[in-house]
Design a protein around this nucleic acid. Structure first.
Length: 437
RNA sequence: GUGGCUGUAGCUCAAUGGCAGAGCGCCUGAUUGUGGAUCAGGUGGUUGUGGGUUCGAGCCCCAUCAGCCACCCCA
């Protein structure tokens, strides 16, 4: 017999986990649509050349496959952003810009799996395509704040930065592009390994002590957003692109405030680098309150990626929620619904009245309740109750000779054990009202 | 992709190279239409998988698979 096992980094989700995931996705969808975003779905399979050259040096993590002997190399999508860029370019004349779209689905990355890092990962991706307005940047940040709050997260922090602030820091320190890339990688670890070890790593990689000092002084800036921006513009004075970036970020921040995003939920963090090479403007990332699991989401502005398919630049800003991480954290903390079944009512069956019980189930379903019936009428009533109880079904109903004669049903609340008789034609309405309360 | 830790009953975990165990769970019952609590009885294993060393392997060695941790990177 073949021993059953699943592929490393790919997870199965039994009903209790799946019900939580559906809750997460339904909540996110509701918030996205509240902000007027429209759904998009694309295939998980793309031509290899669509994905190649878009995400930087992480291409070794892309799963590639052959096309059943066909002549094209195929690949599983690595994220939802590159497929979005492909779709935008391919259907340009059917899309009205600016386009707000969301997509929820899985991507694949050939990483070494770990908690919060999987090879099949679901993401909820949200983008505003075709606008360079800082209001668009602010809008997606307001949206993510809204969504996390609605899911029940508190105390999270959105780190905000701008690619041209980072590269400005590299420029004023006199680093070339290649050295700069290494510097970004190092400072991205600040929260994890601390400033001293980052400084060591910089110097080990050929950055002079004076350069490291200058970089660290800018990158470690913290405090009120306006103070940080002021200090950055002092430190980066003379670098025109950095000055523009600071002005742009300042504008985004003012819109965020207007949109009601609480000031304590975000901060300007010049240390935030982010790996994907396609970002060109604002970048942001959300850290959970206790920071146990990496970032909950990440994103930013990428004004040139779509141009690689469209032949003209189409400015876009967006981000992706990591549903796996939301799921893991919510499971650990008992957030969200903790159900193991969708059933709301269990109808017991006596052998001599099975027809009545099945008819009752049908009546209740027609009125919108989720109903299961016992399957073995010869099973003792106690067993039938036990089945309902173990499934955590809220109500069990009993329909026997006495009840049939009186036009009633016995309704037992399995959570508190209480029991009462209700008129058969009113049961559904009463239970529905109680379940919604 | 690199380095490390772990893998024993459905679950959580014991077992000096010498008979593989406990708690929980699960099943049956405590008189006919009432679950959870209690009590009585019962059920539990190719020790992840495949090799090797040894008189003898859950324990040592090799390989492999999976999970976890640190890198790397990211959601």
């Amino acid at each position: 017999m073949e021993k059953p096992r699943n592929v490393s980094g790919m997870r199965d989700h039994l009903p209790e986990a799946m019900l939580l995931r559906q809750h997460i996705m339904n909540t996110l969808t509701r918030v996205f649509e509240r902000h007027g975003f429209e759904p998009l779905s694309t295939s998980v399979v793309e031509y290899d050349e669509v994905l190649s050259g878009k995400i930087g040096d992480e291409e070794k993590l892309i799963y590639r496959l052959d096309d059943n002997g066909g002549k094209h190399r195929l690949a599983l999508r690595y994220d939802q952003t590159v497929p979005l860029a492909r779709v935008v370019a391919q259907y340009q004349n059917q899309i009205q810009f600016p386009w707000r779209r969301y997509a929820i689905g899985q991507s694949f990355r050939g990483e070494r799996p770990q908690k919060g890092r999987y090879r099949e990962l679901w993401q909820a991706d949200v983008d505003i395509v075709g606008s360079s307005s800082p209001i668009a940047d602010a809008e997606v940040i307001a949206l993510l704040t809204d969504a996390l709050t609605e899911l029940g997260f508190r105390g999270f922090t959105t780190l905000l930065n701008h690619r041209q602030i980072l590269s400005g820091i590299a420029r004023v320190s006199g680093l070339d592009d290649q050295a700069a890339a290494g510097v970004y990688r190092s400072i991205d670890k600040l929260d994890k390994i601390g400033p001293e070890r980052v400084r060591e790593e910089l110097e080990r990689n050929g950055v002079s002590a004076a350069q490291a000092e200058q970089i660290m002084s800018l990158v470690l800036l913290e405090g009120e957003p306006e103070e940080v921006l002021k200090a950055l513009s002092d430190g980066l004075a003379g670098d025109e692109r950095a000055m523009e970036a600071i002005a742009n970020l300042r504008e985004v921040l003012s819109y965020i405030a207007s949109m009601g995003v609480p000031a304590e939920s975000y901060t300007v963090a010049p240390r935030l680098a982010r790996g994907l090479s396609y970002y060109t403007g604002t970048v942001f990332e959300v850290l959970d309150a206790d920071r146990s699991i990496g970032s909950l989401l990440g994103g930013g502005r990428y004004d040139e990626l779509i141009g690689q398919f469209a032949g003209r630049s189409i400015p876009t800003v967006g981000f992706a929620f990591g549903i796996e991480r939301l799921h893991d954290l919510m499971t650990e903390r008992n957030m969200g619904p903790r159900r193991s079944t969708t059933a709301q009512v269990f109808v017991t069956i006596f052998p001599e009245h099975s027809a009545d019980a099945l008819a009752l189930a049908n009546e209740l379903r027609k009125q919108g309740l989720n109903v299961v019936t016992a399957l073995d009428s010869k099973q003792k009533l106690g067993k039938q109750f036990q089945e309902a109880d173990r499934k955590q079904i809220p109500y069990a109903v009993v329909l026997g000779s006495d009840e049939i004669a009186k036009g009633e049903v016995q309704v037992k609340n399995l959570r508190d054990g209480s029991q009462r008789s209700l008129p058969r034609d009113q049961v559904a309405a009463i239970l529905k009202a109680e379940l919604e309360a």
